[in-house]
């Protein structure tokens, strides 16, 4: 199978709607197909990655730990839109620090998160072959 460039765009906050969880499940299942995968977090989508989510009291599964496993699935291009983060009073420190391990460099840990401006992300989006929107 030819490798294609996939981008998943995530624009919804977690828990209030089911989009965030659905996207995550599609990403994990899709990872079995060895494609070139990028994730973009835009608008309220940046809220999916906040640290310290605690969901016992709302009776929903806390799926935020799953994002930390994405590196194991070779999903290691995680784009965060800078403008969206700033508009929400957040910085990268408020988000999980996502990493992946490079098997070819003796499992060296590398950052997965790329903080980019809207115009930079627009360029990355334009390079994609398949875009899935959540």
């Amino acid at each position: 199978m030819a490798i294609k460039k996939f981008m998943y765009t995530n624009r919804k906050a977690p828990y209030g709607t089911v989009y965030a969880l659905e996207s995550l499940e599609v990403v994990l299942i899709g990872a079995a197909f060895d494609q070139d995968v990028s994730l973009a977090f835009i608008g309220d989508g940046v809220y999916q990655l906040t640290k310290g989510q605690t969901t016992e009291a709302i009776g929903q599964k806390n799926f935020s730990p799953v994002y930390a496993a994405l590196g194991d699935y070779d999903v290691n291009k995680i784009y965060i839109e800078k403008e969206s983060l700033e508009e929400r009073g957040l910085s990268l420190d408020d988000l999980q620090h996502l990493v992946w391990e490079d098997e070819d460099e003796d499992w060296a840990e590398k950052d997965s998160i790329r903080l980019v401006s809207r115009s930079e992300l627009a360029d990355v989006m334009t390079e994609q072959e398949i875009i899935l929107s959540f």
């Binding site: 977690p14 828990y15 906040t50 310290g52 989510q53 605690t54 009291a57 957040l90």
Partner: peptide, 13 residues
């Protein structure tokens, strides 16, 4: 609503 704020990891915000 506290539980909704906690779920979203934003209690300290």
């Amino acid at each position: 609503l506290g539980p909704d704020l906690q779920a979203r990891g934003l209690e300290n915000k």
